[in-house]
Nucleic acid binder design. Structure first.
Length: 660
RNA sequence: GCACCUAUAGCUCAAUUGGAUAGAGCAUCGGUCUACGGAACCGAAGGUUUCUGGUUCGAACCCAGAUAGGUGUACCA
């Protein structure tokens, strides 16, 4: 039910008397909102105060005039003026019940009408490198993108999801090099993906070591410079001890010195550690300047070298299988998975086009697009002729434009790439993609408890699969605690226990990610989300299970579904009304969540709904209600509550179980 | 150096994009109830929204400055 637009439509003719410009009128109408203070109002219109200057009247007088002209008698039981000029609306319980019955009669869509003007939206999300196992860093893009896709579709938009797999970059040069030089044939035959991933790590370690060795002189130079700077600052400050700026300069210089020192030490330690490993050092010597060699393998692949292409063709399906197993487990599907390799042949044309339009120029041997406001250009072709991910991104956008003609294109990618996307969008607009809304749906980093990017104790990134396993086993311990299950009075089979743990565990991970405002960093705390208390998926899943439990109990008590399914809904007690009002807001909430693509609007709504249900559950007996009519009405209300919770979770990609 | 982002309760986070007395969850303290499933409910305590100014009828939100942190910054993706 679109309550807001209905209420706004009632105010519109009155406000139009004063606000003749459509923009001003719309801005005023948008100040009619759901009230935050349940005690004061259900909905409120904050329209009188801003008009006081324009009309030269006190806001209370304006509010009175508005109230006397707006006709809300069929929707509201009261329209009052409060505070400095707020118009407060209280919905009529009868109308509220009427709306809820309509929603309940349509359990699939909850009477949510498809949008009048559907948009075609391409959503680019997840996009892992297929050469390495997925890790914790992929969870946000995957879960947020999936949820946005589902919500847009439910609202009636055409959402096209595309997993822009990294299947063509340097990482394949690494694997190819590793395969040619370090492979273990037996291991490869037994478990190709594990062996490829090992080869990737072997190559990466050598490159890391060689880079570290190469960086020592630079780091030492930086250290010396930092020392000099500190000494200079101290000398200057000694001459002018009052100068605050100089004091600050010293602090900054000291910090930079610390950082330089730390970096140098880190490099030295890692070199030291590797030096103990004689086989490794021997290998590193044999494969000097491995980074360059890897780039050559990559270049050979890109230029169509038969051997490398055949290896690539052999590797990619295996790598994809590995990644798909994770998606299967997470119950996530994509419409398309073109991947970077798909655009390979389009890249020369992209560069030629940019050159022809004089947008790109040669600089330092590379072909670059210089953009206003940025120091560094966007490089589209390297000195050695190779293309970069920016080139692929341009080709991809052009392809999507041609193929799908989207109204909007969303990139669900880490906030660290925001400059890349700003530049990309700049370039895309310059080559004519002006009527598509291009949006970087950025999100913050997942941090460990130390406030640094989430890593395991040994400092390696956390694999996604093992993280999911941990969540599921954590959920099992809590949900399938023998004492708890005993109290439920139901004998759960092992299969049921496993299904519940899987649903609750994966839900915990997804929900923990979605419930934070996507733009901020958040601290990952497995213990907290697995404890299943507070604002977690489990609390909501449990609320759902309770609604089902009551309905089962009713059935065994002889109240068949048919008796309450069409029964009149009558809302009298405060907990009933509060819950009902919340359920009424489902559609407005979904639209709100898509204004800026914020799934946490949905999680918040569901948590609030579950809390209102718990409160209702505690204060209003359903099966023990005073009149038979009330029993039927309440059964219908909790069924609608359950359906709403289930649908909301479904739009977040989270499942429910009938009992847990 | 330059650019962008962030700063809210002890901790982790919200705040319908400028609306009323800044809200939740953990943690702390107190209370309820033989239960339609206690993973519950009700309540208390906890805040100069980093600081200083400004704009506005109204500011956590907008502007300026300061402080502290993060990220990015020419051929990785």
């Amino acid at each position: 039910m679109r309550v807001l637009s209905l209420i706004r439509s009632r105010f519109a003719p009155v406000l139009a008397n004063w606000l003749t410009e459509p923009d001003a009128l719309n801005a005023a109408l948008e100040r009619i909102v759901a009230s935050r203070e349940a005690g004061l109002a259900d909905y409120q219109a904050n329209v009188a105060m801003p008009l006081q200057k324009k009309l030269g009247k006190p806001p209370l007088a304006i509010a009175e005039e508005i109230v006397s002209h707006v006709d809300l008698s069929d929707l509201c039981e009261s329209v009052t003026i409060a505070g400095q000029g707020y118009v407060n609306l209280r919905l009529s319980p009868k109308w509220l019940a009427q709306c809820l019955m309509e929603a309940h009669a349509d359990p699939e869509r909850l009477a949510v009408a498809p949008v009048a003007t559907p948009k075609t939206v391409v959503i680019d999300y997840s996009s892992p490198n297929v050469a390495k196992p997925m890790h914790v860093g992929h969870i946000r893009s995957t879960v947020i993108g999936d949820s946005i896709t589902k919500i847009l579709r439910f609202l009636g938009h055409k959402a096209i999801s595309d997993n822009h797999l990294g299947d063509w970059g340097t990482q394949f040069g690494m694997i190819i090099y590793g395969y040619k030089n370090f492979r273990d044939d037996v291991a490869y035959a037994q478990a190709p993906v594990a062996e490829l991933s090992r080869l990737y790590r072997v190559v990466q370690r050598i490159i890391g070591f060689q880079d570290a060795v190469a960086s020592i002189p630079k780091l030492e130079l930086a250290l010396t410079k930092a020392e000099q700077k500190l000494t200079e600052s101290k000398a200057k400050s000694a001459a002018a001890p009052q100068d605050k700026k100089l004091a600050k300069e010293i602090a900054v210089a000291a910090r930079q010195l610390d950082e330089a020192n730390e970096e140098l030490q880190k490099a030295k330690t890692s070199i030291e550690e590797s030096s103990q490993d004689h086989d490794f050092i021997e290998r590193s010597k044999q494969h000097a300047e491995l980074g360059q060699r890897v780039l050559k393998e990559t270049a050979k692949l890109h230029s169509g070298d038969r051997e490398n292409l055949e290896l690539w063709e052999a590797f990619v399906p295996n790598c994809k299988d590995e990644i798909h197993s994770v998606y299967t487990r997470l119950n996530i599907q994509f419409d398309h998975e073109f991947g970077e390799s798909y655009y390979h042949e389009m890249l020369p044309a992209v560069v030629e086009d940019l050159l022809a339009k004089s947008l790109a120029v040669q600089s330092g041997g590379a072909i670059c697009v210089f953009l206003d406001g940025y120091e560094a250009p966007m490089i589209v072709q390297k000195q050695d002729g190779a293309y970069l991910y920016s080139t692929t991104d341009i080709a991809t956008a052009v392809f999507r434009e041609r193929e799908f003609g989207p109204d909007a294109s969303l990139y669900v990618v880490d906030h660290r790439q925001s400059e890349h996307f700003q530049k990309l969008f700049d370039v895309l607009r310059k080559i004519g993609l002006t009527h598509t809304e291009l949006k970087h749906v950025e999100f913050g980093t997942v941090l460990g408890e130390d406030g640094k990017p989430f890593k395991t104790r040994s400092g390696t990134v956390v694999g996604l699969n093992s993280m999911l396993d941990e969540a599921v086993s954590g959920a099992y311990e809590v949900v399938c605690d023998p004492d708890r299950l005993l109290k439920s009075g139901y004998a759960f089979t092992d299969a049921e226990k496993r299904e519940i743990s899987e649903t609750v565990g994966l839900g915990a991970i997804k929900y923990a990610d979605l419930c934070h405002n996507r733009t901020s960093n958040y601290v990952f705390d497995m213990k907290k989300m697995v404890q299943l208390q507070g604002n977690t998926a489990a609390y909501i899943q449990y609320s759902y299970a309770r609604t089902r439990s009551i309905l089962r109990k009713a059935e065994t008590d002889g109240i068949e579904t048919s008796k309450w399914l069409d029964a009149p809904l009558v809302l009298i007690e405060a907990p009933e009304l509060n819950l009902g009002l919340q359920l009424l807001r489902f559609e407005d909430m979904l639209n709100q969540s898509m204004v800026d693509y914020l799934p946490n609007v949905v999680t918040e709504y569901l948590f609030e709904t579950a809390k209102l249900f718990s409160s209702f559950y505690d204060q209003c007996s359903v099966l023990g209600a005073e009149t038979p009519e009330s029993v039927l009405s309440r059964l219908r209300l909790i069924d609608l509550t359950g359906i709403t919770l289930r649908k909301g979770l479904e739009l977040l990609g989270i499942g429910v179980v009938e009992r847990m």
